[in-house]
Write a protein that binds this DNA or RNA. Structure first.
Lengths: 172, 172
DNA sequence: ATTGCTGCAAACGATTTGCATGAGG
DNA sequence: CCTCATGCAAATCGTTTGCAGCAAT
């Protein structure tokens, strides 16, 4: 068994604890209340390494507590995003995806427009660009969104369609 | 009257002609048909310097020919996107925006999350990153999407809210 | 003639909201 | 107790689709 697993588990544990603290403080500050549902959702959410859609998260949550409704998951994710625990991953296919940012280096995604698979990559220059442009135009920048679209090797090998008539999906 | 205006007008004219040609050829290649509505929409679309939403374009189109329907504008924009005349501008607020790329350097947008205004900026490194990451992971890249979010100077001066409870809009 | 295009209305799909009820402080 | 959170169903909103009639080839 590789040592790495242990570190990962510890990281994940620590991240969960930190997340709980952040959420608790956020709720307290706004006079909001704690709930078991939100706890369950946070637990599962923080356990995911990859980004996932509301629907996917809902599926996992439902397995653990079938009484939890779709709406609650939506509201929880929004709440997590508000207190900085979750950030939205934007693939422009009309589906909201979230990932947690604790113990994760800033990264971006490259998405295959045929199979939908995504890979993560690192490009530190991007942060510098955000800073630079913000400075140049007197913006207080908050975040950026960057993703690359293309076709992965597997899809190119598989498919013989070289001239897709329906190049990409429309929707922001 | 500044000389520049003349150049701009000529550019715009030339771009329109080129666009018409591209569209005509695209239609011919796919066995599709020409229509007056599409012509009207293309004219107006190519006349815009800035990106605009379907709704905004629809408004302008309607002024010129009130008989044209919403659906037709949607379909036209999709068509323009397919033949490369239009590209989608993604602000992640649930509204599709398009801009034409003829005679325009590749650029990106920085958006004020308070007033919604956007400014264009140039960052040539981004294209290089797209190339590099694509190469590294064996993707045939097609395009990328990059935007910066923050607050503009005017909004920061105006508003005294330093801790927005509703940081950003959810929707991909 | 054939087949694509248009405009309307209805359908869609992800997300949000209203509301009665239940739980937290 | 008072207020917020929940879960359901209904509402929203941008976008897409089905279809009958019109227009282009």
């Amino acid at each position: 068994m590789p040592e790495r697993r242990v570190d990962d588990q510890e990281d994940s544990r620590a991240a969960l604890e930190e997340a709980k603290l952040i959420l608790r403080e956020y709720l307290a500050r706004l006079g909001l209340k704690h709930s078991t549902q939100r706890d369950t959702i946070l637990n599962i959410f923080m356990g995911m390494r990859e980004h996932l859609s509301t629907e996917e998260l809902y599926g996992l949550v439902k397995k653990q507590d079938p009484a939890i409704g779709y709406t609650t998951v939506y509201r929880a994710l929004k709440l997590f995003a508000q207190c900085g625990l979750a950030s939205e991953v934007e693939f422009h296919d009309g589906v909201a995806r979230y990932e947690h940012g604790l113990n994760r280096r800033t990264h971006h995604h490259m998405v295959c427009t045929q199979c939908g698979e995504s890979i993560e990559f690192f490009a530190p220059e991007i942060d510098e660009i955000e800073q630079r442009i913000g400075r140049d135009f007197h913006f207080a920048t908050i975040r950026h969104s960057f993703q690359i679209y293309g076709t992965c090797e597997a899809c190119r090998t598989k498919s013989t369609v070289r001239y897709p008539l329906k190049p990409r999906q429309t929707r922001t």
